[in-house]
Nucleic acid binder design. Structure first.
Length: 499
RNA sequence: GGCGGCAUGGCCAAGCGGUAAGGCAGAGGAUUGCAAAUCCUUUAUCCCCAGUUCGAAUCUGGGUGCCGCCUCCA
């Protein structure tokens, strides 16, 4: 089997074949940098991160381009509100973007072009469209003439001739009058009073929203690329317009595969800025939701389906992740005790999955995992493979945590070890990386309250011996509140664990 | 009004014609002063109706409900 992807362009599940053998070119629509990213962005970029990781693990050389839209009305509005400038607002939010994406373990794109730095390409493309008669200017604005593009509507299944004008009448009348067709869209917008603007043959102004992506794809990857990515809310008009511009200007198909991710919903409704029902990635992380919990939550659903966000579903993912994570960490924390080779530092390289196919004990799981991802990135099933593999390992982790030294026979130990490194390898394809807790990473504060804990345990033991269980439970609860969990062992010894 | 998607156990979620993955939660048992943890066992006929088929959650037709896009949006 080989990778199959649902192509929005053909509305079908298709076997993926790259233009150049062994190489994949990907363009992903990025964010408009006027604010922090929310969970919807996280979903999109995590899904595409998995696509990228999987392609790399299959041996492809992937060039991944993602833009920053740094010219936009919302950025201007924000700048005005903050008594700042457009570029200051963009700059700040680009930093924040990287902070969030890095936290989520999303591999940075190969390059991240910005609209303000691609103006030449943009002007050239508009000029080209003008020469081909597909663009016209009115009072410093330049519009794309939709009727000139024979295939207009092919991505979003819209038929212009049958298309009734949007009943809600949201389009501004003034602008309407200037357009030849209501679906025409701006390639270049004349500057308004006091706005930042850039020179052009049509006067001072700034690029329309769609043109930057067309220009960037051409500049960074060429006329035709393998895969174009984005949220399903971008299909129309953004991607439709991108196709129209690029294909009209270049005379070539823009992208062979168009992939779109489903929305994150809140109470059945799309999470969006305008509805105000969004939760930022930052807020979630600050509330103690770990990055990998978020990743697990997102990848447990298929990328094309809507995903409902609730506190309960995050809590469920968090519990699930804790279990999986304990298995992923076992070889990192306990390799000395288990006499396992010292694990390599986490790298952004991916072991070739196919090597596991020949390993009898891992072959099945490996094949299941590959089949799942081949099937339009079925991460949900891939994760179930991870959970199956993790069972004996999290059990091992648990025994170790509780002070047992499960010194089984050597063969068994070896099998666990290879299972563990296999699990870590598979999880890495999904970007699920072991999270050692803060306390484990920085063991300060550990020593000075240890004596206190031992004292408390002694006190509790005395209470237990005198059958004063209420007092014993009180002591346990107090420690628990401080993150110390007590475990009574069979032999009467009480051990404690930091959580 | 046009285009598209979805409906699976208490919750989330796979499934793509051969008899329901996985996660969370729950139940029973072992263990425990009680817990925690662990181990074992366990919980669904898939929105409704009709049809195709030896066989359908999966295909077809008709309902019902929900959502997205058509305006900025991942």
């Amino acid at each position: 089997m080989s990778l199959k992807l649902t192509n929005t362009l053909t509305k079908r599940l298709e076997t993926f074949k790259s233009l150049k053998p062994g190489e994949v070119s990907i363009y992903c629509c990025g964010v408009t940098v006027y604010d922090l990213c929310h969970l919807g962005h996280a979903r999109s970029y995590i899904a595409w991160d998995v696509l990228r990781r999987y392609l790399i693990s299959q041996g492809y050389q992937v060039t991944f381009i993602q833009n920053f839209t740094d010219i936009d009305d919302k950025i201007l509005a924000k700048a005005a509100k903050e008594h700042s400038t457009m570029s200051q607002v963009s700059e700040k939010n680009i930093k924040e973007f990287h902070k969030d994406m890095d936290a989520l373990g999303i591999i940075r794109p190969s390059r991240m072009p910005r609209a303000t730095r691609c103006l030449n390409g943009i002007r050239e493309m508009i000029h080209k469209l003008e020469k081909k008669g597909a663009a016209y200017s009115v009072d410093g604005d330049v519009y794309f003439a939709v009727m000139k593009h024979i295939d207009y509507g092919k991505l979003s299944s819209r038929d212009l001739s049958e298309q009734q004008l949007n009943a809600d009448g949201r389009i501004e009348k003034e602008e309407e009058a200037r357009k030849q067709s209501p679906f025409d869209f701006a390639l270049w917008k004349a500057a308004k009073e006091g706005e930042p603007s850039f020179p052009s043959p049509w006067g001072e102004g700034r690029p329309g929203w769609h043109i930057e992506c067309s220009a960037m794809v051409l500049q960074e990857l060429g006329e035709t690329i393998d895969i174009h990515l984005g949220g399903s809310d971008l299909i129309f008009p953004h991607h439709e317009n991108e196709i129209a511009q690029s294909e009209m200007a270049n005379g070539k198909q823009l992208a062979n595969y168009w992939l779109h991710n489903g929305m994150v919903n809140v109470g059945g409704q799309k999470m969006s800025k305008s509805l105000g029902n969004f939760t930022t990635i930052r807020a979630l992380l600050n509330n103690g939701v770990s990055p990998m919990t978020l990743r697990l939550f997102i990848l447990q659903a298929h990328y094309r389906k809507p995903l409902d966000f609730t506190n309960e579903s995050i809590a469920a993912a968090s519990k699930g992740w804790a279990r999986l994570n304990s298995a992923l960490c076992v070889g990192l924390k306990n390799h000395q005790q288990l006499n396992w080779p010292k694990p390599e530092a986490q790298e952004q390289t991916f072991s070739n999955l196919k090597k596991y196919i020949s390993d009898e004990s891992l072959s099945n799981s490996c094949q299941q995992f590959i089949d799942a991802l081949d099937d339009d990135l079925n991460t949900s099933v891939a994760i179930s493979v991870l959970f199956d593999l993790s069972r004996p390992l999290s059990s091992l982790a648990n025994q170790l945590k509780r002070g047992f030294s499960p010194l089984g026979d050597e063969a068994e130990n070896k099998e666990l070890q290879s299972k563990w490194s296999f699990l870590v390898g598979l999880a890495n394809v999904l970007g699920l990386q072991p999270e050692l807790s803060q306390k484990e990473k920085s063991p300060q504060n550990q020593m000075h309250n240890e004596i206190e804990i031992i004292e408390a345990i002694k006190e509790r033991k005395a209470a237990k011996l005198s059958k004063n269980y209420a007092q014993a439970d009180k002591i346990r609860q107090e420690l628990k509140d401080k993150g110390i969990e007590l475990i009574d062992k069979k032999n009467g010894v009480t051990e404690w664990i930091k959580n």
